[in-house]
Design a protein around this nucleic acid. Structure first.
Lengths: 180, 180
DNA sequence: TTGACAATACCGTCCAGACGGTACAGCTGT
DNA sequence: ACAGCTGTACCGTCTGGACGGTATTGTCAA
């Protein structure tokens, strides 16, 4: 098969994420991932020499994708007084609007070993600091960050505690809080 | 060994939770749980005829324990205007103060099958409604619920994004918001 | 230009070990 | 007598990963 430089790698990572969602985070097998990605198991192990490396890459990809979206939204709010906070909200709202299945790749990584989430930990700590600096108000920054974090967690674990209209009114309220 | 009626059951559930924390949520084996609980595998399977039943019980125990703590705190705030919201905050604060390892039993259940979390979903939906009724202000209730939810998630996934003093100032601010 | 070689990107097979679960015989405190 | 176990033996399945092989593409000296 003729493939671009890292096209197959990306396909494998995406297949892993989708499979984690479909068959449960702890039931991710390399065989299944390979099959879903349209690659033989040998081929998979060429790109990711172990399951650990695959899950590592899944988390890293997740962070990179999120960072790209956030930067895009930040650029769109470049003239605003609180671009980071606005962008942070925007990305979350887009995420729920898109109704795409939660990124269970990170759950699969968590199931294997909690320390795989370290990149997220680092990224989010830096993000929280940026929101703080952006808003000036530390307390408000934390409220914004953790409300969104709670909502994301609710999605990630498929708890579905809130309805869409409740999410909408909550995000509107947050928008008002950070626009004052 | 002399045991009470359901003492062994409880010991097994607790062993499962601890093991999920120590060796990763997805690497919970019945052999290991039995060993940790000081029970033979046959004995474990006497109490929980399958792994699914064990994880189910783990989640149920988690919800029951939480409910007991919440009710205690509610009783302590019986004369206040917003007992549920106050108690909700109290239980969280106690939880982080105790510095006990996160209840990874639910992560193990999640790894096996996300639908094991349904009891939590039901409980939390009802809890959110109670906080809403308690506070009168729907938006404020959701902010309170999701900030705490975000903080819990942060703990559950061991992300440790915030320091203890930041948590303290955030919970104080929430306390002020719901005491007005 | 070409031929030798090497790196890349896979394929297909195989295996040791772990796992969930079954079965069952025996022990023991009440 | 019987619930509540223990201990052992076992089965079928699945899994991560090692391994050897193959086809394609790229590099580079002669």
């Amino acid at each position: 098969m003729v493939t671009g430089r890292h096209e197959t790698r990306e396909r494998i990572v995406q297949a892993a994420s989708e499979l984690a969602w479909e068959s449960g985070p702890g039931k991710l097998s390399l065989d299944a991932v390979a099959a879903k990605a349209g690659v033989s198991k040998g081929g998979l192990l060429y790109h990711f020499p172990s399951k650990a490396k695959l899950l590592e890459a899944t988390v890293e990809t997740f962070v990179e994708d999120y960072d790209r979206l956030l930067k895009e939204r930040e650029a769109a709010h470049a003239q605003a007084t609180t671009p980071v906070a606005q962008a942070f909200l925007d990305v979350f709202i887009d995420d729920v609007r898109c109704k795409r299945p939660p990124s269970s790749g990170i759950l699969a990584a968590l199931a294997e070993d909690p320390s795989f989430l370290n990149p997220i930990k680092r990224y989010d700590r830096a993000l929280l600091d940026r929101i703080k600096a952006d808003l000036g108000d530390t307390g408000l920054a934390m409220i914004l960050y953790f409300v969104i974090s709670g909502l994301k967690c609710n999605e990630l674990l498929s708890l579905n505690v809130v309805r869409q209209d409740e999410i909408d009114s909550l995000t509107e309220r947050l928008r008002a809080l950070i626009s004052e």
